[in-house]
Amino acid sequence: MSTENTTPNMQLNFTLNGQLLNMRVGPARRLLDILRLDQGLTGPKEGCSIGRCGACTIQLDGAAVPACLLLAYQVQGKEVITVEGLRSKPAFQRVADSLIEHGALQCGYCIPGIATSLTAALTQRPNASEGELEQAMHGNLCRCTGYSGLQQVIKDLATPAPNN
């Protein structure tokens, strides 16, 4: 197989926010760039480019993952959901409304990532405890709030531990 002198590209098929997409794309293109630059979905944000801040969090087959670390080929045949695709879903709305109620946002830049992570955690584990939800959120940085609002949201959405 000769790979010299050809710009690499692949036939990528994946589901994005419920829609089946087919595209020719460089296999190592970042998913974040496919979403923001190619598809015009600016919900996921770029905060660090190295997967340390969580601002680019999307759902990949239901799991919250940083899009800046995903390479195009890694989403072949999978389902990607961004905050744009979550908006209409009750599970997300429950999270978003809780964020509003507890004043858990200020500049809001971290929020698409936070809301996406929290929704994924609750969808995968509807009876998640406070501790489990907290652990799911360690990778989502916020600089404005000091996390107080988010602490209240987690208390609000978690399932209390059963009494001994």
């Binding site: 969580g54 940083p66 670390l69 992570s117 652990q135 360690h138």
Partner: peptide
């Protein structure tokens, strides 16, 4: 395993 990174990067 839990001590590595955070939930998102642990997926990858």
């Amino acid at each position: 395993a839990v001590s590595v990174g955070a939930a998102g990067v642990r997926q990858l």
